[in-house]
Amino acid sequence: MMQEKSLATTLKALLYLAPALIILVVFNIYPIITSFLMSLYTDYDYYHDIVYRYGFDNFLFLLQDEDFHLALRNTFIFVLGVVPASITLSLFIALLLNTNIKLRGFFRTIYFIPFVTSVVAISIVWRWIFHTEYGLLNYFLSWFGVSPIKWLTDPKWAMPSLIILAIWKGLGYNIVIFLAGLQNIPEHYYLAARIDRASRWQRFWNITWPLLSPTTFFVSIISVIGSFKVFDEIYALFDGRPGPVRSALTVVYYIFEKFYREQEYAVASAAAYVLFLIVFILTLLQLYIGKKRVHY
């Protein structure tokens, strides 16, 4: 009964697809190609749109640019600071929520709220929390005898501040995904374990952890990719600068600076492609490992 494909059905389908396709071709597919070509511009006249020579000069420039190295290093530090901590915390909270308690929905809602708020707005709120003299954080720390920390103005503390904010903001999202994963683990495994008098700890390591591995892996990759692209928080937290003495310069911030502030389109495109490469490798890793190793 389903119609065979023919010229007529193809034309009809095109009609349905046209609105989405026009937008996606112009603003998604075409720019992927142009951006790649742009990263190869080595001698060009932007105003007249003439390219005299293509080459790998922009990538070579990135290889030698101290700023780009700094951006990469900072981004890696950020990812390492955020992802393991965020995953450990969110898994822990998801496990607590997955017990037989009342108010589970209530708590889940609370943990999820930061995720729906504007990064910019909440970063400005955190700017105030991080305030050296009158900020909430230093006030709490003063209870434990910690002298005021210059969270946002001391280059040493800029990255930790950013990491704290990112963990706080992203926790709810990870919790929700972990909860979904936990609920997919069949109850009878736990029943069997209880009959065998397995301790809570044994139940976690022998049932939950292995069966949850696809979810854990998914959350890790998503968090790593997301963290690689950090930008809004930095802009708002450090008032349009990449932290004190560029201590919070990340890859996307670097792209933004090159593109928007310095009009170095070719270098910015090359840097964007380096980011793409990193994300691409991570995605392949996810697809590959996701198919092979994970599960039991």
Binding site: P31, T34, M38, Y265, F276
Partner: peptide, 8 residues
């Protein structure tokens, strides 16, 4: 990543 699309 969206950043690749930004400039074009």
């Amino acid at each position: 990543p969206g950043e690749v699309l930004l400039i074009p």
